[in-house]
Design a protein around this nucleic acid. Structure first.
Lengths: 342, 342
DNA sequence: CTGAAAGCGCTTACAG
DNA sequence: CTGAAAGCGCTTACAG
């Protein structure tokens, strides 16, 4: 039924071995035979079969995509999707296709990623973190499978990772507020214990020091998630203080949205009464009223870097490396600064 | 190196054939041998290899995911992602994993989807439309590969499709406006020629008839895309009319966002001066000011249905079938109707 | 209930 | 420059 390498060989009057060499671009093949075989492959529309190639070579040209953590089930997280989109383009041009693991399958061992990677013989993996990690990710990190973590520190021999410089995220916010004349800055932090939110929190404290700004205990409150409601709740507390802060830095856009809702409910104006900046640069930032000033991660670049780093590990057997990507301040209207060159 | 079925057989003192039968749940195996083999597999952590299984059975347990059309390169479209997310869960529980094709690869023949499906021996495909179709999708539809189209009419022997009932989308909007007392309704249409936008347009015209409402030529303008700017431009035209419409139905949320911008710039109020409803229920609808009333597609259900339809075609060899999913009106604040039971 | 043997479609030393 | 042969790790009639 299916047309195989044997058929091509017969049609061209050569051996399957020779056809194989031509498919794989070996140099030691006669130009004449090469052309003949090539044209027959063309005519017949022949294509090799992945499983046969994979079985023989132990390579699959497949990259596994894993969204680690409890949030695992959902691949529609905007951050995840943007990274993967960019990653896919680059890795695609390098000759790989993407395999998304269904978490619903190998449930037996609570998500045995390593087993699945071996099952499919993936050449490598990209693991994007969703904060709460499973042990099976650690197992995968330590294995022979090349891995690259995004927002996730990996330390295996054939692993690498990258993330936005989250300290810089906070210091850019502080700098912005500082230049605008603010000296007392509040922070709506993300959940304590989440690596990303901890980095932003610590970055905030550190930046305060660098700019000689006071750390005001009552102004620093951490929510229980990155969600809208959490930001709303924290802002309510801030609003109930004897002296309401005039500048607040929310660790996520969603929290900033919640804070904006609370501020409006309190009858206060943004940015006149309270200036606010978020974090993530969701699409909705442009549509909310007023449009939210925020920090953007260069997801395009991150996906691309992840692709190249992974391919370096796979092909050149490079060891662990890590990269920190520069974040960018996006000035919109929640801080009263309209000048673009901030 | 890798532990194989032969090792297990040797360790258990049986033949590879017997181990294979146990792996594949054949019934004609002695209980005693079965238990022994099972425990050895457990101890050794043995897992079969995908490529070997696939080569022998000609099945891959892989479903190809294709985002058809020119927009192809980007998988971060919210509609696409939500559908795929739901699809993935269901199809995952059915034992399949997802393969995302890189468009950058087989560029030779402008995206030879069929060839790629055969190369990977995918068991089936889900094709989500991005309006502008490539010929290679048609080729795939006509092939032996089971396909299910989302927002895309497929007619192959082993194909099926589903989409939201886009006529109903429009009639629900008209009904809402009608109940609110509006009799002259404007339409900011999507690009002419795009199947989805045409259905919404035609549904609009038809619903007008059903409610005995007039078709006002000047009030019906189609944009050149579903984008924000396009909605802005069309709304400007509407605003320049001698009699400005008081109710407008935009064929996409993004267009509605653009229209809102134009309305605000003109110094008019929403919904007091102009009521507006969008289409898609993007996240941003909740954050824009005022929150946008819109029509939501049941993406969760659509993904699930797509999964079951596809698996029916694959396993039961079922023929073509098509499904139309009921859309839902989400009442927010752009029409002046706050009552939930609309 | 169990196993020997052939086959799935390719690749890779190796010999010539 | 070319080909015969063995091997990759499974499965599937078929025979017993």
């Amino acid at each position: 039924m299916r047309i195989t390498i044997k058929d091509i060989a017969r049609l061209a009057g050569v051996s399957p071995a020779t056809v194989s060499k031509i498919i794989n671009n070996y140099s030691d093949v006669g130009e004449a035979t090469k052309q003949k075989v090539l044209s027959i492959m063309e005519e017949t529309g022949y294509r090799p079969t992945h499983s046969a190639q994979s079985l023989a070579t132990k390579k699959s040209n497949l990259i596994g995509v894993i969204f680690a953590g409890k949030i695992n089930v959902d691949i529609n997280d905007p951050f995840f999707v943007d990274i993967v989109n960019s990653f896919k383009k680059t890795v695609g041009s390098l000759g790989y296709d993407l395999l998304f693991f269904s978490n619903e399958k190998f449930q037996a061992t609570d998500d045995d990623y390593l087993a699945r990677c071996r099952y499919y013989q993936v050449d490598g993996c990209i693991i994007i973190s969703g904060d709460e990690l499973q042990p099976s990710i650690i197992e995968l990190d330590r294995s022979e499978i090349p891995c690259i973590g995004v927002d996730l520190v990996l330390s295996g021999e054939r692993s690498g990772y990258l993330m936005t410089d989250n300290y810089k995220v906070s210091s850019k916010v502080i700098e912005h507020f500082y230049l605008l004349g603010h000296r007392s800055i509040a922070h709506i932090g993300g959940k304590k214990g989440s690596p990303i939110s901890d980095m932003r929190y610590n970055g905030f404290i550190r930046a305060l020091g660098e700019y000689g700004l006071p750390i005001i205990e009552e102004y620093i409150i951490r929510g229980d998630s990155f969600k809208e409601q959490s930001g709303y709740n924290v802002m309510k507390k801030l609003l109930s203080l004897p002296e309401v802060p005039k500048a607040v830095y929310a660790a996520s856009d969603l929290m900033a949205f919640g804070a904006i809702r609370a501020i409006k409910e309190a009858g206060l104006r943004i940015p006149e009464d309270i200036a606010i900046v978020g974090c993530d640069d969701l699409d909705a930032c442009r549509y909310i009223d007023p449009p939210l000033t925020t920090i953007s991660q260069d997801k395009e670049k991150m996906g691309k870097l992840a692709a190249y780093m992974l391919s370096d590990i796979i092909e050149k057997n490079l060891g662990t490396s890590s990269l920190f990507v520069e974040p960018e301040l996006i000035v919109r209207k929640t801080c009263g600064a309209y000048i673009k060159d901030f």
